[in-house]
Deep mutational scan, measured.
Amino acid sequence: VTLFVALYDYEARTEDDLSFHKGEKFQILNSSEGDWWEARSLTTGETGYIPSNYVAPV
């Protein structure tokens, strides 16, 4: 499993987005949709879409 870490804070803009804080780690569930990836936060357990340019591989 490839994990990603948040480089910046992000505040959700829609109900499908996932808010997160810098340093939070994610498991990517689906990265085939372009710039927005479906991810699960390893901190909160919540699932939603995150901007791929806000995260980097651990």
Score class of each variant (00 low, 15 high):
residue 36 W to E: 04
residue 27 Q to C: 12
residue 12 A to Q: 06
residue 17 D to I: 12
residue 21 H to N: 10
residue 13 R to S: 11
residue 5 V to I: 13
residue 12 A to W: 02
residue 27 Q to H: 13
residue 53 N to R: 13
residue 20 F to A: 02
residue 7 L to H: 03
residue 21 H to F: 14
residue 33 E to A: 14
residue 38 E to T: 13
residue 4 F to L: 04
residue 52 S to F: 08
residue 17 D to Y: 14
residue 43 T to E: 13
residue 3 L to Y: 13
residue 38 E to C: 15
residue 53 N to F: 09
residue 27 Q to W: 15
residue 27 Q to P: 00
residue 49 Y to A: 05
residue 23 G to N: 06
residue 3 L to T: 09
residue 27 Q to M: 14
residue 51 P to K: 06
residue 44 T to R: 04
residue 24 E to S: 04
residue 41 S to C: 07
residue 3 L to V: 14
residue 26 F to W: 01
residue 30 N to Q: 08
residue 31 S to L: 10
residue 42 L to Q: 07
residue 8 Y to W: 15
residue 13 R to A: 12
residue 44 T to A: 03
residue 43 T to L: 12
residue 53 N to C: 13
residue 14 T to F: 15
residue 33 E to W: 11
residue 51 P to Y: 07
residue 7 L to M: 09
residue 45 G to K: 06
residue 11 E to N: 11
residue 33 E to I: 12
residue 30 N to L: 06
residue 29 L to G: 04
residue 3 L to E: 09
residue 29 L to R: 05
residue 36 W to A: 06
residue 38 E to Q: 14
residue 15 E to V: 12
residue 49 Y to E: 03
residue 26 F to N: 00
residue 17 D to R: 15
residue 52 S to V: 08
residue 57 P to L: 09
residue 53 N to Q: 11
residue 54 Y to F: 11
residue 16 D to R: 15
residue 21 H to E: 09
residue 3 L to R: 05
residue 8 Y to E: 07
residue 26 F to D: 00
residue 53 N to Y: 10
residue 51 P to H: 08
residue 26 F to I: 05
residue 6 A to V: 01
residue 38 E to D: 04
residue 30 N to R: 09
residue 35 D to V: 12
residue 5 V to P: 00
residue 16 D to N: 14
residue 57 P to A: 10
residue 23 G to L: 03
residue 35 D to F: 15
residue 33 E to L: 14
residue 36 W to F: 12
residue 20 F to T: 03
residue 40 R to D: 01
residue 12 A to C: 05
residue 7 L to E: 04
residue 30 N to V: 07
residue 33 E to K: 15
residue 18 L to D: 00
residue 53 N to E: 10
residue 17 D to H: 15
residue 29 L to K: 05
residue 41 S to W: 01
residue 52 S to R: 13
residue 41 S to E: 03
residue 57 P to W: 06
residue 1 V to W: 13
residue 16 D to V: 14
residue 39 A to Q: 00
residue 46 E to V: 10
residue 39 A to L: 01
residue 5 V to K: 05
residue 49 Y to R: 14
residue 20 F to C: 02
residue 33 E to V: 11
residue 1 V to D: 12
residue 37 W to Q: 03
residue 23 G to H: 05
residue 4 F to Q: 03
residue 49 Y to H: 07
residue 49 Y to Q: 09
residue 20 F to D: 00
residue 8 Y to S: 07
residue 15 E to R: 11
residue 51 P to G: 03
residue 8 Y to M: 09
residue 50 I to R: 00
residue 31 S to I: 12
residue 42 L to V: 09
residue 13 R to F: 09
residue 12 A to I: 02
residue 23 G to R: 03
residue 15 E to Q: 12
residue 30 N to I: 06
residue 38 E to L: 15
residue 35 D to N: 11
residue 44 T to S: 10
residue 42 L to S: 04
residue 48 G to Y: 02
residue 57 P to F: 07
residue 13 R to T: 13
residue 35 D to L: 14
residue 28 I to N: 01
residue 25 K to F: 15
residue 48 G to S: 01
residue 23 G to Q: 03
residue 15 E to N: 12
residue 44 T to C: 04
residue 35 D to K: 12
residue 36 W to T: 06
residue 45 G to W: 08
residue 4 F to K: 02
residue 51 P to Q: 06
residue 27 Q to D: 07
residue 20 F to M: 09
residue 38 E to A: 08
residue 20 F to E: 00
residue 53 N to M: 11
residue 19 S to K: 04
residue 43 T to N: 10
residue 18 L to Y: 05
residue 6 A to T: 03
residue 56 A to I: 14
residue 54 Y to C: 06
residue 11 E to Q: 12
residue 17 D to A: 15
residue 37 W to S: 02
residue 31 S to M: 15
residue 26 F to R: 00
residue 36 W to C: 07
residue 25 K to I: 15
residue 3 L to H: 10
residue 48 G to K: 02
residue 7 L to D: 02
residue 50 I to V: 09
residue 45 G to Q: 07
residue 4 F to E: 01
residue 22 K to G: 04
residue 12 A to S: 12
residue 35 D to M: 13
residue 43 T to M: 10
residue 7 L to W: 03
residue 9 D to V: 03
residue 19 S to M: 04
residue 16 D to C: 14
residue 41 S to V: 06
residue 47 T to W: 09
residue 32 S to L: 11
residue 39 A to K: 00
residue 14 T to Y: 15
residue 5 V to E: 08
residue 57 P to E: 09
residue 46 E to Q: 15
residue 5 V to A: 05
residue 49 Y to V: 08
residue 14 T to G: 15
residue 45 G to P: 01
residue 15 E to F: 11
residue 15 E to A: 14
residue 18 L to R: 02
residue 24 E to K: 01
residue 21 H to C: 13
residue 10 Y to G: 02
residue 32 S to G: 10
residue 34 G to A: 14
residue 21 H to Y: 14
residue 10 Y to F: 10
residue 36 W to P: 06
residue 40 R to N: 04
residue 24 E to V: 04
residue 36 W to L: 09
residue 53 N to G: 11
residue 12 A to G: 11
residue 37 W to L: 08
residue 58 V to W: 15
residue 49 Y to F: 13
residue 24 E to R: 01
residue 9 D to S: 09
residue 2 T to P: 11
residue 11 E to A: 11
residue 8 Y to Q: 08
residue 56 A to Y: 09
residue 28 I to G: 01
residue 4 F to G: 04
residue 13 R to Q: 15
residue 57 P to Y: 06
residue 24 E to G: 02
residue 29 L to F: 07
residue 12 A to R: 08
residue 23 G to A: 03
residue 6 A to D: 00
residue 40 R to L: 12
residue 55 V to I: 10
residue 14 T to S: 14
residue 13 R to E: 12
residue 49 Y to S: 07
residue 20 F to V: 04
residue 31 S to D: 14
residue 7 L to P: 01
residue 15 E to K: 13
residue 8 Y to V: 07
residue 41 S to Y: 02
residue 31 S to F: 15
residue 3 L to I: 13
residue 9 D to L: 03
residue 27 Q to I: 15
residue 7 L to F: 03
residue 26 F to L: 08
residue 29 L to H: 05
residue 20 F to G: 00
residue 2 T to V: 12
residue 30 N to Y: 07
residue 50 I to F: 01
residue 35 D to R: 09
residue 9 D to T: 07
residue 38 E to K: 12
residue 7 L to Y: 03
residue 4 F to R: 03
residue 29 L to I: 11
residue 31 S to K: 13
residue 46 E to D: 09
residue 34 G to P: 14
residue 13 R to W: 08
residue 43 T to V: 10
residue 52 S to K: 14
residue 11 E to W: 09
residue 29 L to A: 05
residue 5 V to T: 06
residue 1 V to M: 14
residue 13 R to I: 12
residue 52 S to P: 07
residue 25 K to L: 15
residue 35 D to T: 13
residue 8 Y to T: 06
residue 40 R to G: 02
residue 41 S to G: 03
residue 30 N to P: 04
residue 35 D to S: 11
residue 26 F to T: 00
residue 47 T to V: 14
residue 16 D to W: 15
residue 9 D to E: 06
